[in-house]
């Protein structure tokens, strides 16, 4: 009789269970009504089954978002885990939609499900990609905008994983500042 190694039939469990959300901008509905949970997963294999099944971000219509959050955290500022949090924001030029967008988003997903930020991965709530005509955005959301150590570690690792050149500055902004901003830019808490 042949002995089959467990490697070949046991899925690889992730540290966390994750939920993928989709937002489609329909102006006749409320913001919350436009937000839909697609699916949850907690293994490497199920992550790929979902990722391979859905549209690439670059194929989505303008106004759409994907969000990947830890199970139990909703992809909105109001969630208890996000209220005092913020985000590392990557803003992309229009040219980058073709060159970088899908690659950056997949790398972001792999950072999350692979727990790339070591012990500081506990501070991660999720990530969001916004498809917008004026320029796409990708962000990693963390739970506490005052946790400088976690935020700077996450920012350094993330920037390196994306291959963003050292001379390019990325900013971390609190959701409270983003929600109450008056102009089009939010002040950075960290860079």
């Amino acid at each position: 009789q042949k002995v089959v190694s467990p490697e070949s039939y046991i899925k690889h469990p992730l540290q966390n269970k994750w939920a993928l959300w989709f937002f489609k901008n329909d102006k006749s509905k409320t913001w919350q009504a436009n937000l839909r949970l697609i699916s949850k997963f907690d293994t490497v294999e199920d992550f790929w089954a979902l990722y391979n099944h859905i549209q690439l971000s670059s194929n989505l219509m303008s106004g759409c978002d994907y969000s990947l959050f830890k199970d139990g955290i909703e992809p909105m500022w109001e969630d208890e885990q996000n209220r005092r949090g913020g985000r590392w924001l990557i803003t992309l030029s229009k040219q980058q939609r073709k060159a970088d967008l899908d690659r950056f988003w997949l790398e972001t997903l792999l950072c999350l499900v692979g727990e790339a930020f070591d012990d500081h991965s506990d501070d991660v709530c999720g990530a969001v990609i916004n498809i917008r005509a004026k320029g796409d955005k990708i962000a990693i959301w963390t739970t506490d905008y005052e946790n400088k150590e976690a935020i700077t570690h996450i920012g350094r690792v993330y920037k390196e994983r994306l291959g963003v050149p050292p001379k390019v500055i990325i900013g971390y902004q609190s959701h409270a500042d983003t929600a109450t901003k008056s102009g089009s830019t939010t002040k950075n808490k960290f860079v």
């Binding site: 899925k11 690889h12 992730l14 490497v44 294999e45 992550f47 790398e107 792999l110 692979g114 727990e115």
Partner: peptide, 20 residues
Amino acid sequence: GKRQYDRDFLLGFQFMPACV
């Protein structure tokens, strides 16, 4: 400890036949 997976390990599973 944490269940950490690096990018190459994760990418290695993208086109594996599905588990049943």
